[in-house]
Design a protein around this nucleic acid. Structure first.
Lengths: 353, 353
DNA sequence: GTGAAAGCGCTAACAC
DNA sequence: GTGTTAGCGCTTTCAC
């Protein structure tokens, strides 16, 4: 930190040119002689010169990173979730290859922080941003980001802000289809194990479920909607509690965990067996492998597919090739017959409580 | 992106003060009257003003983020690895609580990139940096970071650059202790399943192993050192291949996966049983739970503990309370008797190949 | 093909 | 307690 780093002027001085010419070389612009260009390149290497992102952003307009932020803590939504892993790779593909810096700001959701997850946007660090998280219904940051004007993509929608730039799957419809499927097969008492209870995706799940019941003239029992979370890792326990009630013969697993073990284990503890004395619809993010082969149906949520298209559009928006906001909501699909392949990845994500 | 954001001058204008006074308020400095201070605060909120990190860093000297970078791709070292998850939390504790922004630059190791993982350092985005990765023996970036002068901490050491600021466990000694333990119990043919074959931690493992053999006058057989990697997820296969050779009666599992399943499964396929017809020493990052209860001994690597202390020192260095470099290398400990508790977290990290 | 000058938003130094 | 000035490193504009 003691000795000063070389600036564009140091390079210019050595090369006997003006700073402007060096700037042209760095940015690959025309209007520099080939000989001069080569000479300057050499001096840049020799001096170990690198442009200062801050100064660049200040003058040139565009800040230095494509940002990723989340509105939940790691406990609520673990970074180990396969979807998040996949997303990082996808961002590389879309942005990294073009030389953009992808920066994940991990600070906003530090416990005890004010949780202003837009911070790096307000402070002009990000030139575009991806928001990964279940949005809370009371969220007020999204509208601010929207007004701020940089290209952004939320991987979830928000009831209270429908104009939000987002790419997501239709969870409401997913819950509706799953529930209706079980109703059509004659079940009267259908339970739901859902994730994200206090966030928009959880609300969407409940809404779809209730809509299906209502259509069929069934009276909802609120105790049959149970919420799991990534923190307490209590899926098996929840399943157990629901199934101990012998009346329950249908179960929608929209826990977002793709966790076959918890379902089997929860059922076992309740003295019941999947596919024998109750039927399930299990949600999955993958359309080519079965989470739980003994389920009656799988509901595929094209979350990755929606995100992939959203990212492409975000990149185009960032390049100035289109305007925002992005509006993608993919419909889920219900499959009664699934491939024989059981998921190869370990689906006992969290172990027992 | 169209309408200009408010600057410090806009605030100053509205408040009828100079920009400098506003700057004093933002930075919580003395020398501003209480009334003025309140008035300015109000206007800042009203205008939705936020300081521009770039400009700030440019003038004030210190860039805007504590950085995290890695020198390997996600495939080589998955972010889902429990240690990485733990580390992020720890960084929150040490830096996030003080209001520092923690930024993980995910771009350098994008496939096809030049993999200059120091990029965000050279470009003055980071005021301090944590390097998480198995370092490659040919690495030349670390010395450059060292010379660059910002506080940094590598979570691994490097033969070729011993002055590196680092916090790590002593893998060489770990391998030595593990191997010697098996030799002392009478084994003559001892195999090793190691991770990070082509990186420094893998080299350290091999060195410790060979040192123990040599001391005992045993002739090493290079086929007995096998390397696994996070990408191919072939642990069970490797274990199988090693144990098919009936002569092998001792096995050091330093695969860094804490994966009981692979060991059992690999042995089963080879028609052998852990603790019956061969003995193992299993490496673990946790000192209060057993990875594999039937192992003869566990070697505990205080990697987390070293990193935790390293981060504290890094924070102090960053605050100017001490100088670098950091030099922490914790000794591992071998336990013959382990707690009854088997690890609660799923230890079948990767599923079968 | 190249250079001079201005200014992005901010803060440190010094004036009053 | 507050204002003025200069300048951080860079890119843009406009000259030549």
């Amino acid at each position: 930190m003691n000795k000063k780093r070389p600036t564009i002027y140091d390079v210019a001085l050595r090369a006997n040119v003006s700073a402007n010419t060096v700037s042209r070389v760095i940015n690959g612009k025309t209007g520099v002689g080939d000989a001069t260009r080569e000479r300057i390149r050499g001096i840049i290497d020799e001096l170990g010169y690198f442009p200062n992102v801050g100064a660049r952003a200040l003058r040139g307009g565009r800040p230095g990173c494509i940002g990723v932020v989340r509105s939940s803590t790691t406990e609520d939504v673990p970074l180990s979730h396969p979807f998040i892993q996949w997303l990082f790779g996808e961002m590389h593909r879309v942005f990294g290859a073009r030389g953009e810096r992808i920066c994940f700001d991990m600070s906003p959701c530090a416990p005890g922080n004010g949780t202003d997850y837009g911070r790096s946007i307000w402070e002009s660090l990000f030139s575009a941003c991806v928001l990964l998280n279940p949005l809370s219904p009371g969220d007020t940051t999204i509208p601010r980001i929207h007004r701020f004007g940089i290209p952004y993509l939320s991987l979830g929608r928000l009831d209270s802000f429908p104009e939000c730039s987002s790419a997501t799957a239709d969870y409401e419809r997913g819950a509706y289809l799953s529930t209706k499927y079980l109703i059509d097969r004659g079940h009267q008492s259908i339970a739901m194990v859902r994730a994200f209870a206090n966030a928009q995706p959880g609300i969407d799940r409940e809404r779809g479920y209730l809509r299906a019941l209502e259509e069929a003239g069934l009276v909802p029992d609120e105790r049959l909607i149970q919420s799991v979370n990534f923190k307490t890792r209590d899926n098996a326990l929840i399943v157990h509690r629901l199934l101990v009630d012998g009346k329950v013969t249908g179960l929608v697993d929209c826990s977002a965990t793709e966790d076959a073990w918890s379902m089997r284990e929860g059922a076992r503890r309740a003295g019941r067996t999947v596919g024998k004395d109750f039927e399930t619809v299990v949600w999955t993010y993958s359309n080519d492998a079965a989470v739980l082969p003994e389920a009656s149906a799988h509901l595929w949520l094209p979350v990755r597919e929606a995100a992939a298209e959203g990212l492409e559009l975000l990149a185009a928006w960032h390049r100035g090739e289109r305007e925002g906001p992005i509006d993608i909501q993919y419909a889920p699909a219900l499959f009664e017959s699934m491939p024989d392949v059981e998921m190869t990845q370990s689906k006992r994500l969290f172990g027992q409580p």
